[in-house]
Simulated scan of single mutants.
Amino acid sequence: MKQKRILTPEDYHPGHPWYYLLGGTPPFPKQILERVKKHGYRGYKQRYIEEAAAKAEPDRSIALRAIKDDSRNSLFANLSRYREVARGLRKYRENPGEQPCFCSDVHQSVSLKHNHIYNDFAHLIWLDELLSEQRDLFDF
Rank of each mutant, 00 (worst) to 15 (best):
C101P: 10
V85I: 04
G40A: 06
I49Y: 14
K55D: 00
L130W: 12
S74W: 11
M1G: 15
L124G: 12
F121L: 10
K2H: 08
R72K: 09
Y48W: 08
S74F: 13
D128S: 14
C103F: 04
L22P: 03
L89Q: 12
K30L: 12
Y82E: 06
Y118E: 07
G40M: 03
I125E: 15
I117P: 08
L22K: 14
A122N: 09
G43M: 02
P100W: 00
E133R: 13
S109Y: 12
Y20P: 01
F121Q: 02
R93A: 11
F102V: 06
W126C: 01
K45F: 13
Q108N: 03
A56Y: 00
K4R: 13
I125T: 05
S132G: 14
Y41A: 06
D11M: 06
Y12A: 04
P27K: 10
P14L: 02
F102Y: 15
Q3S: 09
W18C: 03
S111K: 04
A54Q: 02
L131D: 07
W126V: 05
P58S: 08
W18H: 13
D69I: 03
F28V: 00
R81N: 07
L137G: 10
R65V: 04
P96T: 05
Y12F: 15
W126I: 02
Q99V: 02
K91T: 08
R60D: 13
K113R: 15
S109P: 01
L130M: 12
H123S: 11
D105L: 07
H114C: 04
E129Q: 13
A77R: 14
G40W: 07
S111W: 01
G43L: 02
S74Y: 12
L21T: 01
Y41V: 12
V36G: 12
R47V: 09
P26C: 06
V36I: 03
R72M: 06
A122L: 07
H123T: 01
D128Y: 06
L127I: 01
P14M: 03
P26T: 11
G24E: 08
Y41E: 10
E84A: 10
S74A: 14
R47E: 14
C101F: 01
A77H: 05
L131M: 15
P17V: 11
E129L: 04
K55I: 02
Q3M: 08
I62A: 03
E50H: 08
W126G: 01
H116F: 10
D128F: 04
K91F: 09
Y41N: 04
L21C: 08
N78K: 06
S132L: 05
Q46F: 08
F76M: 07
R81F: 04
R93E: 15
F121C: 07
H39Y: 06
V36D: 01
R35F: 03
Y92G: 00
G97E: 15
L89H: 10
Y92K: 05
L33D: 10
D105E: 09
I117R: 14
A54P: 02
L33V: 04
H39C: 09
E84K: 07
R93P: 05
K4P: 04
G88D: 15
S71K: 09
V110H: 03
V106S: 10
A52C: 03
R65N: 15
E34G: 05
P58N: 06
Q99K: 15
I6Q: 14
R93L: 15
F28G: 08
N119S: 13
S61P: 00
Y92A: 00
S109K: 14
E10V: 01
I49T: 11
R47W: 05
L124D: 11
